[in-house]
Design a protein around this nucleic acid. Structure first.
Length: 367
DNA sequence: AAGCTCGCCAACCGCCCCGTC
DNA sequence: TGACGGGGCGGTTGGCGAGCT
């Protein structure tokens, strides 16, 4: 296979990204969303390969990234997931909103691995070192149920019996003895389809006390908010970042509503915030597709257009089927309604809402 | 203060998978 | 059906800063 074709081109910059490059990439994605990565460098005026742009966006520029130290709960969850999934960082990252696979991988290699070693636990098998050396092959392939069963017999995964919400971290914790306790059904989740329920995500995020916005992007956010007041966002739908509340990063307990309003750029954000906060306070999160539709319908009570891309927070979770793009529109021709081009898609929330209420739409949860 | 070591982490590399032609 | 290109993923590297001598 060899080197990726985009990297073979001449005069491509490598190494650390400059603030200027970041700004160019950020502005490009902010305007046009995530599309064909190979065309991004050219369109954004960057001397980088598409892969490099993609990585920079995913690992650093994405507004839904959480920065800072890993919490104890996150650490426990990583340990738990690693025992089940092994070095499948991307799958592990799915369960840790706001964290990238690269970040988790680095955290594992720099901290957790050593921590386990100090505790006398083999980081690759999660068994006591002595036992591991004697009997256990290094990396087990847990993809098939037989090997999982075999593994769990040697080191049982405790399945919680009570009706617990999945991703309750306190119930999916690493106990330091090589065993992992997960909520009922969680193990199945890992090994069946890659589908992921965002309700679980919200549940989890309630508990991990996120650290807030990606600080790297605050200046840009502020800039956009200065340029475009909330009422202008309907006319500037391409600024999906600002109109898209970051569900992963709100400190639902700590942040004042007034503060939120000041920081958010749209009514939609406030509506979403209220909804999530409500869920947070009474833990009555919708658990069915129908309920999810209802909740969403309440959330999207205005006519704001959500312009967001599949890599970003909410639409990465909700894939609305049954919504067809009627026409192809160039990105620079976008207006405040539903648009679709080959590479970029945005949906008017009211349409989504109507479809959901009408029962025509199916929400599938997707990684 | 200078040199050295070490750890962290951003970014790259190489491979694989999948879709398209 | 095979070649090709794009995207995604895990492993690895190297730059840089902090701490130590």
């Amino acid at each position: 296979m060899g080197r990726h074709s985009c990297c073979t081109k001449q005069k491509l910059r490598k190494g650390l990204w400059s603030p200027d490059e970041d700004e160019k990439l950020f502005n490009h994605i902010a305007r046009f969303g995530v599309g064909c990565w190979s065309s991004v460098p050219k369109l954004a005026g960057l001397q980088r390969c598409g892969k490099s742009c993609r990585l920079r966006w995913i690992n650093y520029l994405r507004p839904d990234l959480k920065r800072g130290m890993f919490s104890q709960q996150e650490e426990d969850l990583i340990l738990s997931l690693h025992q089940v999934l092994g070095n499948r960082w991307a799958q592990i990252a799915v369960q840790l909103p706001g964290r990238t696979d690269n970040e988790i991988k680095n955290f594992w290699n720099s901290c957790l691995k050593k921590k386990l070693m100090k505790q006398g636990i083999d980081p690759s098998t999660h068994k006591p070192l002595a036992e591991s050396e004697i009997s256990t092959p290094n990396e087990k392939d847990y993809t098939d149920e037989a090997s999982l069963l075999q593994s769990s017999q040697a080191h049982p995964i405790e399945i919680a019996t009570e009706t617990e919400k999945p991703f309750n971290v306190s119930k999916a914790c690493y106990n330091g003895s090589g065993n992992v306790r997960v909520a009922s059904g969680l193990a199945d989740t890992f090994h069946s389809t890659p589908n992921f329920n965002p309700v679980f995500l919200l549940e989890f995020q309630e508990r991990i006390n996120p650290n807030g916005y990606n600080p790297n992007l605050m200046p840009q956010f502020q800039q956009y908010q200065t340029l475009y007041e909330p009422e202008q966002f309907e006319a500037k739908p391409n600024f999906g970042f600002s109109s898209m509340p970051d569900l992963t990063n709100y400190d639902l307990e700590g942040i004042a509503e007034a503060e939120f309003s000041a920081n958010s750029a749209s009514t939609l954000s406030s509506l979403l915030y209220n909804e999530v906060k409500e869920c947070s306070s009474n833990s009555s999160i919708a658990t069915s597709t129908a309920n999810a539709g209802f909740e969403l319908d309440k959330m999207v009570g205005n006519n704001s257009t959500l312009s967001w891309n599949p890599d970003n927070s909410l639409e990465s979770l909700f894939q609305f089927s049954g919504i067809k793009c009627e026409e192809s529109v160039e990105p620079n021709e976008w207006q405040g309604q539903a648009h679709c081009s080959d590479d970029y898609i945005s949906y008017p929330l009211t349409s989504v809402s109507e479809d959901l209420v009408g029962g025509n739409a199916e929400i599938s949860y997707q990684i």
